[in-house]
């Protein structure tokens, strides 16, 4: 663990370039795989497609292995135990929403991205995707205001409720809306536990131990242990909307620094991502 992201000030350090590179790679993978999805493809096949695509491009380790959710599983309908997150033999059908979620480690940098799409036309899904934009703005604004993470979590949830949606990131382990990501030591052998890379988990656990002493947590949750201002570092933020069997999310890295300048204190690592481009295109079209 380098911990060097704590001091990031410049938006273009080699450090951030590394994270940006892997995040773009992951989104490129998501777009490539999404483009290949056809009616009848199963979640397992979609997960494998992501894994193969990234392996071919040099990814050797993972924060977590790729996930794929189809249909009402995008809204985690009926999820009771974490094992249900793993890909199943659910087949994709026309009009079905899907989510691809992967967290590759590339050259020691971690990304964690989520890509929501839909096979064919689905006006409801379009609506959910469009409504995610407000959450991206809200989160950045409130992090810059240095609000407590727990409060921001509750504000996001309130906005989702006002929009008529259910907060589905509550279904994630610890109900997190975000978690810290960091550099990962490149080892020749990095086994995985329940789909999570041990190297990356090691980083998260050590953060959790340090944070516990200092009163913060690498998990951004609705609980008391997240009742602290944003901790500098890189956060993979993943607001996840659910609406009666249709779910949508994005996931990308938010950089938090200890700068006094609000603009510099927090910013999205990259603004050239599929969902952001989509919102911009919609605005132009309108």
């Amino acid at each position: 663990m380098t911990g060097s992201t704590m001091a990031v000030q410049d938006t273009n350090t080699p450090e951030l370039r590394g994270f940006r590179e892997v995040q773009r790679l992951a989104y490129a993978c998501a777009e490539a795989v999404a483009g290949q999805l056809r009616s009848g493809v199963t979640e397992r096949e979609a997960a494998r497609m992501q894994r193969v695509w990234l392996r071919e491009r040099g990814v050797r380790d993972w924060f977590h292995l790729p996930f794929a959710w189809f249909g009402d599983r995008t809204a985690f309908a009926g999820f009771k135990v974490p094992l249900q997150f793993f890909p199943t033999d659910r087949k994709l059908e026309p009009g079905m929403p899907f989510i691809l979620d992967m967290a590759p480690v590339y050259k020691g940098f971690t990304a964690d991205v989520g890509y929501a799409g839909c096979l064919g036309l689905n006006p409801l899904h379009d609506r959910l995707l469009a409504d995610l934009e407000a959450h991206r703005e809200l989160i950045l604004r409130e992090v810059r205001e240095r609000r407590s993470l727990r409060e921001i979590y509750e504000d996001v949830e309130r906005l989702m409720t006002a929009q008529g949606y259910a907060n589905r990131h509550r279904a994630y382990p610890f109900g997190v809306i975000a978690h810290k990501v960091d550099r990962v030591a490149e080892r020749r052998w990095s086994p995985r536990v329940f789909g999570f890379g041990t190297q990356a988990l090691k980083g998260l656990v050590s953060d959790a131990l340090h944070g516990h002493r200092d009163g913060w947590s690498p998990l951004w949750s609705p609980y008391r242990f997240s009742d602290h201002p944003p901790q500098p570092g890189l956060w993979a933020v993943e607001p996840h909307l659910g609406f009666r069997g249709t779910g949508a999310k994005f996931e990308e890295i938010l950089v938090v620094t200890d700068s006094k300048d609000p603009e510099q204190s927090a910013f999205w690592l990259d603004d050239d991502l599929p969902h952001v481009r989509r919102w911009a295109e919609e605005k132009v079209a309108a």
């Binding site: 006006p123 409801l124 006002a162 929009q163 008529g164 609406f243 009666r244």
Partner: peptide
């Protein structure tokens, strides 16, 4: 606003 939003989402589903 909330009522209109409910109506709008209702049409979508």
């Amino acid at each position: 606003e909330g009522a209109a939003r409910t109506a709008e989402m209702a049409r979508l589903i």
